[in-house]
Design a protein around this nucleic acid. Sequence first.
RNA 1: GGCGAGGUAGCUCAGCUGGUUAGAGCGCUAGAUUCAUAAUCUAGAGGUCGGGAGUUCAAGUCUCCCUCUCGCUACCA
Length: 703
Amino acid sequence: MNDPKRYIITSALPYANGALHLGHLAGAYLPADIYVRYLRLQGKDVVWVCGSDEHGAAITIQAKKEGTTPEAIINKYHELNKVTFENLGISFDIYHRTSDPLHHKTAQDFFKKLYDQGGEFEEKTSDQYYDEEFNQFLADRYIKGTCPKCNHTEAFGDQCENCGSTLSPSELIDPVSTLSGKKPTLKSTTHYYFKLDKHEQWLRGWIENGEVDGEKVHQTKAWKKHVIGQCLSWLDGGLHPRAITRDLDWGIKVPVEGADGKVLYVWFDAPIGYISATKQWAEDHGKNWEDYWKSEDSRLIHFIGKDNIVFHCIVFPSMLKAHGDYILPHNVPANQFLNFEGKKFSKSRGWGIEQNDYLETFKEFPNKEDALRYALIRNLPENKDADFKWDEFVEFHDNELVANLGNFINRVTVLTTKYYEGKLPVATALHLAPVQKLAEQLETALEGFNFKVAIQLVNEISSYGNTYLQDVSPWKIWKENPDSTEVKDCLATCLEIVGLLSVFVAPFLPFSAAKIRRFINLPELRNGDWEKAHTNLKNGVSIYQSDHVINEPELLFAKINDRKDTSRLDLINAQKAKLAAILEAEKANDREPIKPEITFDDFTKMDLRTGTIIEAEKVKKADKLLKLTVDLGTEKRTVVSGIAKYYEAEKVIGQQVLLLVNLAPRKLRGIESQGMILMAENEKGALCFVSPEKGWGNGFVVK
RNA sequence: GGCGAGGUAGCUCAGCUGGUUAGAGCGCUAGAUUCAUAAUCUAGAGGUCGGGAGUUCAAGUCUCCCUCUCGCUACCA
């Protein structure tokens, strides 16, 4: 595990059916951008790949909904996300796409290799829903029906979006094909399964000890705790073969004879997208992609959000290992989730802000890119969920970027201009020891993916500058003696710090770094400049030529909380007002819509009766369930009810209830439930009994 | 119920393999300063490190139990 010769960095491929929000940015893209920019400035050989994930049923369904083609959808969002990333300074080496023929070929070759060598796949045949009219099997998302759990009539085959339950198509009541609108038939179909279970053993050694085949390949300590924890949890649960093909006409054809109408499942093809993106990049730049993916002295690092841990730490490594030639990820620094003003991002609720939206809304805001990057970096969900707040956005910007960093640079450039007409003063000594120490800590933090710590260290460097300037107070000395060497030493030191900051700030705030370079009249940053600057710092060599002249002072950042110009604060306040309005609207409109009309006959089918709970106990190993015995006068019924969160067992004894007595019995946690107790549920999900007036007898019919 | 991650100053969070009076930023209080975008600098107040028990010469840091938050999962008839 010596220093690697080259790096291959990946960021999760965004699904090309929508725009990305700030949470995505903070999860897999911004941290990777910092890391990659740092590596480049260190003069490393690094390729950072990403691109659009453009297959899967969700895209075809969306196309149908919008009355357009899958191609139109993916083209639209591929372009949008690509441009938005660029505008935010996210510096991928390539932003590829999985609809590219090169990717199709790469993924097919990958599949074919595993297929041909044998032992990795198995075929299984099962009954799946089939649309006779459209002549095709229906992916889970193509089937709609009534949710067996909440009776929502628009539930999908894989999930009910009303109650959030995970479903399988066969559970749906009255399934309907979304293609023809007709009832689908069951038909048998054969699919390929990747035998993940086969890889369980080496995966455990790899995750737990960083060892494969007796060889140490990474330091486990360098991996995040929650990443290892989640992987081990999966391994403990046992791995199972996973279907890697689907019956769909949108995607990558399964390259096997007789597999017509079948495509690779997206999670199989998407990670291979990293490889095809690298191939494309290598072709464009006259490089060999295999150096990056198949050479022991390369280092593969995946930047993802925590929802992708399993794919990148279990599934994809298994695929790579099964293939045989590839290296395994050296680290997967997955981030947790970013919330937005205390709640999850939610497109349907309008809660949160998308990247392109931000850029549009803050169009007039100078330095909008770095302001956003900074606020996100200060608050990255590195080890636990974090929260983006507009108030913090303003505080970070004004207190840290403006008052600390921007102000220091302004002080130095103004003083230099005033005293020396912008010429670098000749110094007898530079006072940079603390800066050198901070620079070393900064490198350690960046190499350990601790970007929050890293940005704080950058702050400390300019903070040191401010303190040092205050200590010397050259403006006092200069009044007495404009020729003082003390003043010259001080400003030369400060200019040196500004020069170093122009480099150290660059991975985080590339736009500001470029501006600082212009202020002090240094050329644009190039690969390797960090390494050079740090070496010079260690050797006491200045980054300036002796007769260097800086440019006229300018302000680096425009304060948000500016008394003379409220335009920027107005923007922030408008955002906050928008959120308040959403909350207000939701409060006013939190009742469920009335269900479709039914007939009196429908109603009379239900046999509702009064009853009294006479026994109650908690069901073991279930959070929500109480086992109740309800007295109906003529008989006693056992009912399992999901009310344990709101009612303790002892407290419900004696409670009068209404019971639906002719509901088909069903086993829950091994106990047969013979009826359903009526409860009212409020917007928070809290429950309350619906009962007859006190003293009513048991067993009377409700009509 | 199972699993994972957390619970450290008013707020947001650092605290690596256990070791001197537990740290940072913001906020607050007092003072200094004017080169600077009402910016900067210094000092101070403020924590029984979720609770309890244990191991140890020594625990925020290890073990066990309990509790709360978030996520995944089972379970809402």
